[in-house]
């Protein structure tokens, strides 16, 4: 198993800085998600690791070996492209065998060995018997699996996936996520995948690296990034939070003259950003630190989600209540708010 060390990597595209000094250690055998909004540089970073983008600055090591100067052909990084990039004029089997057949004769496995390898890989990706079909005859999910089999065929040192589920519909996405997790556990490849979907990242990855404007904002386990976001950007990007502009004074948090609750220790007085998730707001029968008006109620399978306005000028926040708790639209409810994710405003 090979870890990847990214040191000070920068990348310029025609005057714009796509990667701005990235440092990132990817541990051997881990499944790491590169998460960020579009334009954050996550795909560029992945392509840089594969050797598809020449770097402006920095180094990339594969398991102690400096791979910065290695050509893309020599890096042995399995890459799964966002739209799969299957060779449309080759059958599935020819696609999977491609990486083996382009090797110099001395290193090329025998024909029957290649065929056996293709069969094994098709079994691994749960598509036995489709070797003779062409990519155009497959569904999106099947293409995705073939693309992965093709990348695995060359026994890559690391596996890199660019938005692996981006082009698939919701149900197929869910199935493939579980399946990718299985494959990763069985093959144990160091795996990096790019996604803009934070749910996907935290569900699938051992660790998540959050990128923004070409920088790494935070790297950590799903628990760490969800529960202890390093900064306002991470707090806003993961965990579906509503952001309120607040002021902190004497240990209390206020928004628009409404008192929300106690500030965590260590936050200086002044302007700050508060990120509220549904779990941070509890609807209580009486008391509470503040109150709000229910403006909309939506049902999900196991609970009810309330949209609550604290005042006319603040954005609506969301709270979840159990099904037996009766609330009506327009009702004013008492709330307690946990003001944990609070970050001093940067200006």
């Amino acid at each position: 198993m090979t870890g990847i060390a990214v040191r000070g990597v920068a990348k310029d595209f025609a005057g714009t800085r796509a990667l701005d000094g990235i440092d990132l250690d990817i541990r051997p055998g881990e499944l790491l998600a590169l998460l960020g909004p579009s334009g954050s540089g996550k795909t560029t970073l992945l392509r840089s690791i594969a050797g598809l983008e020449p770097l402006t600055a920095g180094t990339i090591h594969f398991g102690g070996e400096d791979a910065t100067g290695l050509r893309v052909q020599d890096r042995k990084a399995g890459f799964v492209f966002q739209h799969y990039a299957l060779f449309r004029h080759m059958t599935v089997a020819e696609n999977i065998a491609y990486g083996l057949t382009v090797r110099p004769r001395a290193e090329r496995p025998a024909r029957h060995e290649i065929l056996r390898r293709v069969e094994d890989l098709l079994d691994l990706v749960q598509l036995p018997g489709i070797g003779k079909r062409f990519p155009g005859q497959l569904s999106g999910g099947q293409r995705q699996r073939v693309a992965l089999a093709r990348a695995l065929a060359v026994e890559p040192r690391v596996l890199l996936l660019d938005e692996p589920f981006g082009a698939l519909d919701a149900q197929v996405r869910k199935d493939l996520r579980r399946w990718l997790r299985d494959i990763h556990q069985r093959t144990g490849h160091t795996t990096v995948f790019v996604t803009h979907d934070q749910e996907e990242a935290v569900e699938l990855a051992d660790r998540v690296a959050i990128l923004n404007r070409g920088r790494v904002e935070q790297v950590g386990s799903p628990d760490e990034v969800l529960d202890h976001p390093a900064n306002a950007f991470v707090a806003g990007f993961v965990g579906q939070a509503v952001r309120l502009d607040v002021t902190v004074a004497e240990g209390r948090v206020r928004a628009d003259a409404i008192e929300l609750g106690a500030a965590p220790a260590g936050i200086p007085d002044g302007a700050a950003s508060l990120f509220l998730r549904t779990g941070d707001i509890a609807v209580v029968r009486s008391g509470g630190t503040t109150s709000g008006v229910v403006t909309a109620i939506t049902r999900s399978a196991a609970s009810r989600r309330l949209e609550i306005r604290l005042s006319d000028d603040l954005p609506a926040v969301e709270a979840e209540v159990s099904l037996d708790q009766q609330v009506a639209r327009g009702e004013r409810v008492a709330l307690t708010i946990r003001a944990d994710r609070l970050f001093p405003a940067t200006r």
Partner: peptide, 19 residues
């Protein structure tokens, strides 16, 4: 036949490309 989806690029294609 729609064949394979067209690639959409997050970035302009690289100026110095690996190709």
């Amino acid at each position: 036949m729609t064949a394979l989806a067209l690639p959409t690029r997050e970035w302009l294609r690289p100026k110095p490309s690996a190709l």
